[in-house]
Write a protein that binds this DNA or RNA. Sequence first.
DNA 1: TATTGTTATACTCTATAACTATA
DNA 2: TATAGTTATAGAGTATAACAATA
Lengths: 151, 151
Amino acid sequence: MNITANRTSLPLSKRRRYLLDDQVGFVLRQAFQRHTTLFTEKMGAEITPTQWAVISKLHEIGACSQNLLGRQTAMDAATVKGVVDRLTKRGIVATAPDPNDGRRILVSLTEEGENLADLHIGRALDVTEATLAPLTATERGTLMSLLMKLR
Amino acid sequence: MNITANRTSLPLSKRRRYLLDDQVGFVLRQAFQRHTTLFTEKMGAEITPTQWAVISKLHEIGACSQNLLGRQTAMDAATVKGVVDRLTKRGIVATAPDPNDGRRILVSLTEEGENLADLHIGRALDVTEATLAPLTATERGTLMSLLMKLR
DNA sequence: TATTGTTATACTCTATAACTATA
DNA sequence: TATAGTTATAGAGTATAACAATA
């Protein structure tokens, strides 16, 4: 009997091999890496994908409380705070107390931030296009709907 | 004319709107986040997905030069060095000079590392299963092949 | 009680650039 | 010349936990 081939003492019929390249997590990481490379090439190193999520979401929906902004961009409270702090320091977003709810901070794009968003939206769409370039239109739709099911 | 709706002066027919939730990069990040959460739940916080890539790849192919290991796990030289350093400090991998090529360092699993790999392979397969749980078998295959095209 | 946000802390991953050593 | 690896440096994202303020 080949011990090497069956380390876990499972019956051979149920033995489960592990090939890294077949695991969805590994392939997801590589796909996201590829996307990030394209993002940096087209958007410049000054904006990261995560920062762009905040900028483009504010551009889309307008001023927004910090926690809600985090939920809209898939970040927890501590993470979104760090991102907002860095963008505030650079004059891209600004914060103000919410007059209607003393707990809340309203985050919004500054004028500079709005301009930056306007200037980069076309490039951001190019990033999506470049990332999906290896796929046909049909495949792109399939991929997006499958990925959305994984959330 | 509605300026707000056409900030970029593109003709309306070609105007390109940007909805964050429709961008592949954003959805990829969320899918990878979900996977990482499941990974941490099932594997424990002591092993990250990136560290597991190194461990499982060494378990799969045996000792390997550091740079080659990086290529096999989708990390550049500086990144894989950091990961190998942390795993070395914890006694999970060990390094030794390559007798056949003075430039190279051979990285391998220690006995403790081999045991750790054996113990965690089943759980790692469970992570893949849990990540893909929302999909049918056919959908899983489709997703994997589409993701692989994006690399 | 639940929600919002802050702060402190820590770790990991990631990349670039300049460098040495060997093939 | 090309490859392998190191080092220094920097920044970003991520999470947890404890906490204060407000609804």
